[in-house]
Write a protein that binds this DNA or RNA. Structure first.
Lengths: 188, 188, 188, 188
DNA sequence: TCGTAATCGAGACGGTACGTCCCGTCTTTTC
DNA sequence: GAAAAGACGGGACGTACCGTCTCGATTACGA
C-alpha cells in the first residue's frame, strides 16, 4: 500500500464498499479489479495505485468489515471466548467477510504477498483479541499455569477456517464445541 | 467422463506422474493443464477427456499419493490416531500432497465441482480412516460412550488444514498436540 | 484412392449418400468426416482407407450427383450450350452439388491434392462436355474458324463459379446471358 | 468493434503489415491469428478487439494492398478497362493480394460475415471503379444505350476470380481476352 | 463345428488453432 | 494535471476437428 495520507478517503471508501458489495453479490473469485473500479466509479489504475493486488485490497475490505471489540475482561475465559466467537459469527452471517476470508486463504496459496499479509495482518493482527484475554486469565490464576494460549488460539482459528472453507455452519452449537474442546482440561 | 474401460492406463499413469512432479517443482497454481499434457507426452484433450477440470485431475493425483493404510486396531485409540497422523505427515513431507491439498482447498472456493469432490472425495472418502477406529473403540468401551467421533475427526482435519494452508510445520509435536486436544477428556 | 475393387460397394454408396445428405443439411464446411462415418454407420478409418481427405471424398460425391449427358449434336452450338447449362443448373437446384463445388474450390486453395483433383478431375474431366460440341461445330463450319473454344469454356466456367461462390442465382436468364456473351461475335 | 477512435494506428499498421507478410511467406490458410499477433509484436486480443475474425482482418489487408485509382475518363471505355486490369494484375503480381482474395472467397463459403463483407466490401466497394467509367461512357454515347454495365462487371470479376482461384496466369493476353469478350458487340 | 484370422465399428490418441477471459501495465482523453 | 476509461502484451483456458492408432466384437473361412 502507498502512503495512505495521499488517498482520497471518499474514493477509498467507495472502493472498499464497492468491493464488499460485489463479493456479497457474486463471491470473491468472480470479482475482478475492473468490476470494483467500475462499481466505485473509479479508474482501474486508482485501485492499483493504492493496493498492489486483489488480496491486498480485500484484506482492507475484511479489516473494515470485521472490527472485533475486546471482550469483557471481568468474565471467565470461556465466556470471553464465547463473546468473541458470537461477535465474529454474527459478522460472518451479515457481511461477506467469510467469503472474503476464504478467498484470501485461497489466494495466499499462490500469492506470497497475500500469504504474508494474511498471516501477519489478519492472524497476527487479530491474534491478540484471543490470546490477550487468555494470557491475562492465566496470569490471574483463572486458568491453569500450563494452559497453552497459542495452541488454544490455533485451535480456534483452525476450526473456524475449516468451516469457512468447507461451507459449514457457524452457529452457537459450533461455538460451544470449540469452547468445550479448548477448555476441555480446565472445566471437567 | 467417457467409458473408463477405454482409458489407456499407461497414459493415465503418465499424466498423474507428470502432474505430481510439476507440482513438486513449481507449486499447484503454476501448473497448467497444458504443461501437464506436455510433460506427460499427451495431448491436452486426453486430459480433458477424462478429467473435467484441474481440481478433478489433482484429486486423483492426491489419491494416488496419499494412500493411508488402516491402523492397528488392537492398539488404543490415541495410538491409532498417532499412527495415522505420522503416516500422513510423512507423506506430506516426501510428496507434494500438502501443496495439492492446499491448492484443492483454494480451488474449492470458486469451483463447485472441486468443492463437492473435495468434501465427498477427500474428506468423505478418507473420513472413515479416522472415524472407524474411534467408533470401534467407543463401541468396545475403550472410549467413553459420549465421545464425539465426528467432532474429533473435524478437529483433526481442521488443525491439519490450517497448518497446511498457512505453511506451518507438520511434526511429531504437532501430532501430539492434536492427540492431546482430541482426547483431552479421556486420558487425564 | 485405394484399389476400388476392394471397396465394399454398399458401404461406399452409404458413405457417399451420407455425405451428400449431410452437406444438404448443414453445408460443406460443417460436415466432418466423423459425422459422415457416423451417418453411414461406418468407422472413420473406413473412409480414410479409401479417400485420403475430405475433398477427395467430396469429389466422388460431386461426380455421383452431377452426371451431365452429352447434348444433341445436331443442334446449333448455342442450343447445345443452353442444354448443358439447363441440365447443370437443374442439378444445382435439386442437389447439394453447388455447395460441394463451392466447398471444393475453397479447399483447393490450401489443399494441393484437392486443387489437383479439382482441376484435373472436375474441370479436366468435364471440360470436353463443353469443348467437344463447340470444337465439332467449328470443324463443321457452324462456328467461325477463329472461334476460341477453350476461351469460351473458360468464360462459362468462370461465370458459373462466380455465381456459385457468391451465392447468386442460376436461372434461365443467367444461362441466356452466358450464351449471349460467349457467342457475341457469332450471332449479331 | 469498440470505439475505433481509441485504436492505436501504429498497432493497426503493424498488424496489417505482419498479416500481409505472413501470407506472402506461407499462404493464406497457413496464417494463424496467433502468428500475426506474434509477428506484429501484439497480443492476440488486440487483433480480436478490432476484427471479429480472420476474414475481417484480411479484408482490411486486401484493402490496403489493392488501392485502385480511377482510370483516365477521357479515354475510350475499353482503354479504361485495360488500365484498370493492368493496375490490378500488377498488384496481384507484386503483393499477396491474389492469395488473400482466394482465401477470402474460400472463407466466405462457410463464414457468413466474410461472405457479406466480401460481397459488400470488396465487390460492392470496388464495383464502381469498373461500372462508373462504363456508365459514364454509355451516358455520353460512347457505348451503345443497351450496353449492360452490371453484366460487363460481373464478367470481369468472374474471369479474374476463376484465374485467381485456379492458379492461372494474369497477364496482358488475359486482359485483352477479357476486353474482347466484354466489348464483343461494341467494336466489331 | 470349430478355431483362427481378417475386417471393421468405435473412439482414444497427439496435435493445432481457435476465440475468450482476465491479469497488471501503459496510453489516451476528459474534466 | 489528475484520474476515468480502456487499450495493451501476455498467458491459460476449454473446445473443435484433424488424421492416425488401438481395441474388441463380428464376421468369414480353412481345418
Amino acid at each position: 500500500m502507498a502512503d495512505p495520507s495521499r488517498r482520497s478517503s471518499s474514493k477509498q471508501a467507495a472502493i472498499l464498499a464497492a468491493a464488499a458489495s460485489l463479493v456479497a453479490a457474486s463471491g470473491y473469485r468472480a470479482v475482478t479489479i475492473e468490476a470494483v473500479a467500475a462499481a466505485a466509479g473509479v479508474g482501474k489504475q486508482t485501485i492499483y495505485r493504492w493496493w498492489p493486488s486483489k488480496p491486498a485490497l480485500f484484506i482492507d475490505v475484511y479489516d473494515q468489515l470485521v472490527a472485533v471489540g475486546a471482550p469483557d475482561r471481568t468474565q471467565s475465559a470461556p465466556r470471553q471466548v464465547r463473546a468473541i466467537l458470537r461477535q465474529v459469527f454474527g459478522l460472518y452471517a451479515t457481511t461477506p467477510a467469510a467469503a472474503i476470508l476464504a478467498g484470501l486463504i485461497a489466494d495466499a496459496q499462490h500469492d506470497e504477498a497475500a500469504r504474508h499479509a494474511l498471516i501477519h495482518g489478519l492472524i497476527g493482527g487479530r491474534g491478540p483479541v484471543l490470546t490477550q484475554p487468555l494470557a491475562a486469565a492465566r496470569a490471574q490464576g483463572r486458568l491453569p499455569a500450563d494452559f497453552e494460549v497459542e495452541w488454544a488460539a490455533e485451535m480456534v482459528v483452525a476450526l473456524i477456517w475449516k468451516r469457512v472453507l468447507s461451507g459449514g455452519t457457524l452457529d452457537d452449537d459450533f461455538a460451544e464445541r470449540i469452547i468445550a474442546s479448548v477448555f476441555a482440561k480446565v472445566a471437567p
